[in-house]
Amino acid sequence: MATVTPSRLAALQRLRCHVFQTSYNPNGIRTGAKYLRKNLVGPAMINYYPQDFSIHALRKLVPGWDAPLLEEQQRLADVQDRKNRGKGAPKKAKSKAESRRAGKRR
């Protein structure tokens, strides 16, 4: 039984890489080729989620449809609740005399 020399095996490997268009890496150095061959995740993720599906988009598509905006109603209810507890925004001064700074002058 004849043995094959390592130089012949290396030449065969080099030729195989040339024919099948793969990288020849006899020392096993890390090249990152595995990650470059891998399919990209981004396009699959974009196709997974529905495109622009929201109440705002539907209201733009159908102008006559008056759908309630739940987030806005919740926000207005929260603002009213804060005002009832005395935590709301202070009233705006109509004139310079009504402002808080006018009373602090000496």
Rank of each mutant, 00 (worst) to 15 (best):
Q80N: 11
G64M: 01
Q13H: 09
G88I: 02
N39W: 12
Q74G: 02
Q51M: 08
N27W: 04
I55T: 15
M1V: 15
Q51R: 10
R105L: 15
L40Y: 05
P63I: 00
P63K: 13
K91T: 09
A89T: 09
Q13S: 02
A97T: 09
D81P: 00
G103F: 14
Q74C: 02
Y24I: 03
N27P: 07
K94D: 09
E72L: 11
R105C: 07
K60Q: 14
P6M: 13
R59E: 03
C17N: 13
L12R: 11
P26V: 05
P43G: 05
Q51T: 07
G32L: 04
K34Y: 08
G88R: 01
K60F: 00
A102D: 06
L36R: 15
K83Y: 04
L12Q: 11
E72P: 03
I46F: 07
A77P: 00
L15W: 07
V62F: 15
K94H: 01
R30M: 10
N25R: 08
Y48F: 12
Q73I: 01
Q80M: 02
L12G: 15
K94T: 09
A10S: 12
R16E: 13
G32Q: 04
L76Y: 05
P63Y: 03
K91W: 07
P6T: 14
R85N: 06
L58Y: 09
A33F: 11
R75A: 12
V41Q: 06
N27Y: 02
A97L: 08
K87Y: 03
Y49S: 09
I29P: 04
K94Q: 08
V19T: 08
L12I: 10
D66M: 00
H18E: 15
G64I: 06
R100S: 10
N84E: 13
L36W: 11
Y49T: 10
A93Q: 02
T3V: 15
V19P: 02
R82F: 12
N25Y: 05
K60E: 12
D81V: 03
P68M: 08
I55D: 08
P50S: 01
D81C: 08
P26H: 04
Q13P: 00
I55A: 14
Q74M: 11
S95D: 05
V4F: 12
A57F: 07
A89G: 02
Y24E: 01
V4H: 08
T3Q: 15
R100D: 09
R75W: 11
G42L: 07
L40D: 14
V79H: 01
V62I: 15
